[in-house]
Write a protein that binds this DNA or RNA. Structure first.
Lengths: 233, 233
DNA sequence: ACCTGAACACCGTTCAAGT
DNA sequence: ACCTGAACACCGTTCAAGT
């Protein structure tokens, strides 16, 4: 239809919000949160740092846009057909995997200032909420249930991202977990009896499975006592 | 017993880790995370920035120490006498209140690199874990249960801290919640039906009560199906 | 042993000047 | 309208030099 240059020359592509955000994600994935710099970004886009400010108001907006670019695609799936529980599990795993692949999302989430209502996490909240409604949770309890699920997801995301980054800084994940387990076992038995007890479980533990088990715990709490009857007749 | 100057002259007090950490907490409380600067800290302590490095290895260690100074006192309480559920609620509320009073703790938590095993949150994990054991959770499920509770607490803490900071930046909390609710109500009904539905509940909602309700949800999940009998006989 | 403060190698952001 | 890049006002951290 429309005419197209057969060889688009990379250097002359005009700057745009999308190109900037894409470059930011790439930079964040490659060199981490500390590597996202207006100077580095400008160099990658073959301009000066000032040019970026024409398309983006500042670093905060850039980070929000980068997060959204990573999170939004994981919510593209269709929930029809699955049970609400399974839809929530799938949703949660999608966010988990996205943050596992882009740890900077997890560590950035907590730090960003809340513009009223507009956050990449609102998409997740909405999707969870719809499934909570499908679970037939009473209206007054829906907000609590959806918030609890989202908070848990964000909490794990942050922890897991921090661990991923720490593991990356050291050698690999297995070695890192071993180091943590070893450190736990050397704790003062009077002060840390429980932590020492469970240190052994750290080695063969699967972050993803553990995450899902926590989701199931909350789901069980949400639906507790209204399945086949109440505990007190 | 030992002789003591009656008027300790403030200016000559020697520098020490404790004084540095105390000044850091004060600075963080007063001017926020962005306000903690080695230069500002040095000025408050009447020295040069270099002096601080003699007592502290860098900014990360300083932040960890500041967090620990705020969190550790909230765990001083004694759990004997209370039910495990109540002990966990008290513990969780202590952390919640500490982070509510010092929002920078919540936003800092996720970002800090994990030194193997040594984190201010390990204290919380240990305390939760002991109560999970007291709940008679099977050994293989203890780690999952304690982790889920901790992750939820951290997730809420981060969210709440971000909200507190956003509210502080705007006018007050009530006005901020109103602004969020208004923004939610203006969302596209096709894309955000649930969020629009619950926007009304945001106004009379109590963060602390909501937090506790989430804890109870997880506790219910942890103890589900083993109180007065199983759902399937 | 502990402190000082200038200096180094960076930041985010702004803004006159260009096209 | 959009881009350039020097300049401003900062950072964390280091380190020779002092006491």
């Amino acid at each position: 239809m429309a005419s197209r240059k057969s060889r688009p020359e990379r250097r002359q592509e005009p700057l745009s919000r999308e190109r900037i955000v894409a470059a930011a994600v790439e930079l964040l994935d490659t060199v981490g949160e500390g590597g996202l710099t207006f100077r580095a970004l400008a160099e990658r886009l073959a301009t000066g740092p000032g040019a970026i400010y024409w398309h983006v108001t500042g670093k905060t907006e850039l980070l929000l846009a980068a997060m959204d670019a990573v999170i939004a695609p994981t919510l593209a799936g269709d929930d029809t057909g699955a049970t609400p529980q399974d839809a929530i599990r799938a949703l949660a795993l999608g966010v988990f995997d996205a943050i596992d692949a882009h740890p900077w999302v997890g560590t950035t989430l907590a730090r960003l200032p809340r513009t009223p209502g507009k956050s990449p996490m609102l998409r997740v909240f909405e999707r969870i909420g719809r499934q909570v409604q499908a679970l037939r949770v009473p209206e007054t309890a829906q907000f609590t249930a959806a918030s609890a699920l989202l908070s848990y997801i964000l909490g794990v995301a942050g922890q897991n991202a921090a661990n991923t980054l720490a593991a990356r800084a050291n050698t690999d994940r297995a070695a890192f977990l071993d180091a943590v387990a070893a450190a736990w076992r050397e704790l003062d038995p009077d002060q840390y009896p429980f932590t020492r007890d469970v240190a052994g479980q750290l080695r063969e533990h699967d972050d993803r499975a553990e995450f899902l088990a926590g989701i199931d715990l909350i789901l069980a709490g949400i639906t507790a006592g209204r399945a086949d009857g109440r505990t007190r007749p």
